[in-house]
Amino acid sequence: MGSGTNIGRVRGLGSAQEGAHHWILQRVTAVGNLALITWLIFSLLRLPNYEHELMIGWLASPLVAVPMILMLVSIFWHLRLGLQVLIEDYVPDHGMKFGLILLLNFFAIGGAALGIFAVAKVAFTGVAA
């Protein structure tokens, strides 16, 4: 490792060892999104109407609640990875970048948790009309 120019000091240090992981997870969650959102669209279009009572019955079914929960996980994971790249590309300041990625993590985990809890509540308890 050289001690002169900046490029001399970083040359040959190798990769950060985790770029491929991010890239692969982005693709894996993309496939998950593709399958589960296709399911959601067709499942919704097949419903006769969108009254609250019917939505409760629909969402409480295991064959709807489980893919819905999986979809939330896949979507929010994919979203977290995508917005991370957005922040890394356009926010040069280290402190700002750190803070925004912290907020992004809260948003992704909090959003997914709220969605999953809502589905679980309907599935387990139903909602009084």
């Binding site: 609250h52 009572e53 939505m55 409760i56 969402l59 819905m68 939330l72 979507i75 929010f76 979203l79 995508g82 917005l83 957005l86 959003g111 709220l114 969605g115 809890f117 809502a118 589905v119 509540k121 309907v122 909602v127 009084a128 009309a129």
Partner: peptide, 24 residues
């Protein structure tokens, strides 16, 4: 579009699910 979906679409999805679970 990815950023729009992440910033606006996902919260809408959660709002929809929450509103179903919260009552008529």
């Amino acid at each position: 579009t990815g950023d729009a979906l992440a910033i606006a679409g996902a919260p809408l999805l959660i709002w929809w699910l929450y509103s179903i679970s919260a009552g008529p």
